Simulated assay, not measured.
Amino acid sequence: MKRLCFTFLASFVFLAVTSLTGYAAYFFNISNFWIMFGIASGVFVAGIALGFVKHVAAKIVAFFVNAVAMGFYLQSWYVNRGFDNSLWLMLGVAALAAAYMLVYVLPLFIPAVNRHYGVYLLIFVLLSLAGYVVLLCFTKTTWVSTLGFYGILQLSFIMGCSFSDVSDFDDQVQVWLVSSYSLLVCAALILMAALGSDCSCDCDGGGCSPSEGISSPIRTVPKNKK
């Protein structure tokens, strides 16, 4: 549970920094989508470069750089769609997206669900992605579309909780950093929208066992070991 709590806090901090950056970017008075998208991509490249530095401090910096990059990507989305958000609304959506982790965690306290965690995670991910894509493609409400992007980011942090080979803080930071790179999915969706492409998602789970290499973050003690 401690790991889940720390992941919840890390995800909220990431989304909060994204919100602050997106709000601040509004005052740059850049009305051209491609310029804003280019700035975001440049910052993201810096985050990728820092991620290759084998030092936990560099990875933490890369984590925050990615949050800043996502903020610029979000503002490019607003520029493209003609949206305008208040800071408090963006932070509220960030808190709502972070709280989505509770939706993921609570069913795991049901023994049957926890025993079949791989199947549960697969269903949870597919339903979440489908819901987020629908939010992004078929809504024109600014806070709803923001929730869609934040939901994708939060889902990556949730999936990061499934890695069982986390032994220390350095490993945990690495998992959070990898989760933050899911902003690439958001950037791709924003780019497709700008290019007028249809939003679609083709999921193929062939040959992939949902339980292989993952484990539930809720640990249970086998009956024969009690």
Rank of each mutant, 00 (worst) to 15 (best):
W176T: 07
G206I: 02
S41Y: 03
G38M: 06
V79Q: 01
L127K: 10
L136A: 10
M90R: 12
I152Y: 01
S31Y: 09
G131P: 03
V43K: 12
Y23E: 09
G148R: 02
F27D: 09
C161G: 03
I60W: 02
A40Q: 01
G47N: 11
V178R: 09
D170A: 15
M192N: 05
A10W: 01
G196A: 12
N80A: 15
V13G: 08
M159F: 07
S211I: 04
Y120W: 06
N114Y: 03
E212H: 13
V43S: 08
A67Y: 00
L108S: 08
G51L: 10
G131L: 06
S211A: 13
F163P: 05
M36Q: 02
D84Y: 05
C201Y: 02
S215G: 08
G82V: 09
D198N: 15
V133N: 13
S179T: 04
T139D: 05
A10N: 04
N224K: 13
W77N: 09
R219T: 07
G206E: 00
G160I: 08
Q154N: 09
N29T: 10
P111V: 13
F63H: 09
L121K: 10
L153K: 00
S162W: 03
S182Q: 03
N114V: 09
A49Y: 01
Y26V: 14
F52S: 15
D198I: 14
N29W: 02
N224V: 07
L147N: 04
I218A: 12
C201K: 05
A193S: 13
Q154Y: 03
V105A: 14
V119D: 09
S167F: 07
W77E: 07
K226A: 15
A16C: 08
L4S: 06
F72R: 02
W143E: 07
R3N: 07
N114D: 02
V133F: 12
P217G: 13
Q154V: 10
D84P: 03
S182C: 15
G51I: 15
D202I: 12
I190E: 01
T21Y: 04
S145K: 11
G71M: 11
L189Y: 01
I48V: 15
F72T: 08
C208K: 03
D198G: 14
F28A: 13
L121H: 06
L121N: 08
V65C: 14
L91D: 00
L121G: 07
K140S: 10
R219I: 14
V166H: 08
F33E: 03
P210V: 14
S128D: 00
F37V: 12
F138E: 01
V56D: 08
L74E: 00
V119T: 13
F157K: 09
L50T: 14
F149A: 14
G38I: 03
V113I: 11
Y23P: 06
G151W: 00
L135R: 05
V53I: 15
G160V: 08
G47I: 06
S209P: 00
V166L: 14
M101K: 07
A69Y: 00
S215K: 11
M192I: 01
M192D: 08
F12T: 10
Q75E: 10
G82D: 05
T142E: 04
R81K: 13
A97D: 02
A95L: 13
G151M: 05
Y78Q: 06
G196Y: 08
N85E: 11
T139G: 03
V105M: 11
C186L: 06
G131T: 05
F109M: 12
G82E: 02
I218K: 06
V166M: 12
L184D: 02
V173D: 13
K225T: 09
Y117S: 13
